[in-house]
C-alpha cells in the first residue's frame, strides 16, 4: 500500500459531494482524474483522511457552446477536449494546447477541472485559461459563485476554492475577430513538465495595430504569470519584429520570476522565455492578420 489510509466516498451527484465536503472540511480531498493527486498520495506528500471520488458524476463531463464561447464541465477529460470539434472551432488555442499536456495515458484520465484546481504553475491549462480570460463556476451546498481565472489562482498550488467548495464549470469565451493565438513551450522530453512556456493572444484593430495583447507564462513563478508591461508595449502599436523583440526582452528580464532547480537555472528559463515570446507573438500576429 503506497498511500496512507483514507475513507473513500464515490457519490453520484453534486449535492452529495458538497455535503460530504461540508462535513469533512480540510480533511477531505476531491479525486478528479487523479493524475497529480495520486502521485502525491503515493509519495505520502498528501494524506487526506477522506477521499471524495467525483468520477461517478455523469453531469460534469459536458462540452457546450454558448453565444460567446465554450462551457466545459469540470470532469471533461483532456482526451475528450483534445478531440472535440466545437473546441477546435471556437477555442482553437485550447485545442492546440491539449496534445501538449502530458502523455496519452495521462490525458485519458486527467480532467480540465482537476488540473485547474491543482493550480500547478507549470500546467498549460492554468496559463491558457488565464490568457483566454476564462471564468470558473464554483459551488458549495448553499450557493454558487463565478471567479475569473485572474482571481482564481492565488499562489503555488493554491486557488480561491474553499474546502467545502467544488469547481463545477469552466467558461471560456472565444476571441474577437482579427485575433491570433499561440502556445510555445520547451520541455526536456516531449510531454514532460515544461521548463518554460508562454500563451500569447493578440487582437488587431482595422489598421492592423494591436488592439489588445496578453502574454501569460507557465513555469515562471508561483502561478500563471501575466506580463502586463510587455503587453502594454504592444498596445496601439503597429506590430514589427523590433517591437516583438522589445516586448519579449521586457517580459523575460523584468516581469517573469522563474526559479532555479535541477532541471534549469533561472537564467536559462529567462532566455527560453525571451525566445518563446518572440515565436509566440510572431505566430499570433500572423494568425490575427490571416483571420479577418
Amino acid at each position: 500500500m503506497k498511500p496512507a489510509p483514507f475513507k473513500y466516498y464515490a457519490p453520484t451527484t453534486v449535492p452529495e459531494v458538497l455535503s460530504i465536503l461540508k462535513e469533512h472540511g480540510y480533511d477531505a480531498k476531491v479525486l478528479a482524474g487523479g493524475q497529480s493527486l495520486v502521485p502525491m498520495m503515493n509519495f505520502r506528500l498528501v494524506q487526506p483522511a477522506v477521499l471524495v471520488d467525483i468520477n461517478n458524476i455523469p453531469d460534469l463531463s459536458y462540452i457546450q457552446n454558448y453565444e460567446k464561447g465554450i462551457r466545459l464541465g469540470a470532469m471533461v477529460r483532456h482526451s475528450q477536449a483534445e478531440h472535440d470539434s466545437q473546441i477546435k472551432e471556437r477555442v482553437p488555442l485550447l485545442h492546440e494546447t491539449m496534445p501538449q499536456i502530458a502523455t496519452t495515458q495521462i490525458r485519458n484520465r486527467g480532467t480540465i477541472g482537476g488540473s485547474l484546481a491543482h493550480a500547478d504553475p507549470s500546467a498549460e491549462l492554468v496559463a491558457v485559461t488565464t490568457a483566454l480570460k476564462a471564468r470558473f463556476k464554483i459551488q458549495n451546498l448553499e450557493a454558487e459563485r463565478w471567479v475569473p481565472a485572474s482571481e482564481f489562482f492565488v499562489g503555488l498550488l493554491m486557488t480561491t476554492l474553499e474546502p467545502e467548495e467544488l469547481l463545477i464549470e469552466i467558461e471560456i469565451p472565444g476571441l474577437p475577430s482579427r485575433s491570433g493565438w499561440s502556445l510555445k513551450e520547451v520541455a526536456r522530453r516531449p510531454h514532460d513538465f515544461a521548463l518554460m512556456g508562454v500563451a500569447a493572444v493578440l487582437t488587431l484593430d482595422k489598421k492592423d495595430r494591436c488592439q489588445s495583447a496578453r502574454l501569460v507564462y507557465l513555469s515562471a513563478g508561483d502561478g500563471p504569470l501575466v506580463a502586463e508591461e510587455a503587453a502594454a508595449l504592444l498596445q496601439d502599436q503597429e506590430i514589427s519584429e523590433d517591437l516583438i523583440n522589445a516586448a519579449a526582452e521586457k517580459a523575460a528580464t523584468e516581469e517573469i520570476d522563474p526559479g532555479s532547480d535541477i532541471h534549469a537555472t533561472a537564467d536559462f528559463r529567462r532566455h527560453l522565455a525571451n525566445v518563446l515570446t518572440r515565436r509566440a507573438l510572431a505566430e499570433a500576429y500572423q494568425r490575427a492578420k490571416g483571420g479577418k
Partner: peptide, 10 residues
C-alpha cells in the same frame, strides 16, 4: 491508463 494512478474501487 496508468494503473498506478487509479484506486481499485474506481
Amino acid at each position: 491508463v496508468r494503473s498506478c494512478l487509479l484506486f481499485a474501487p474506481q
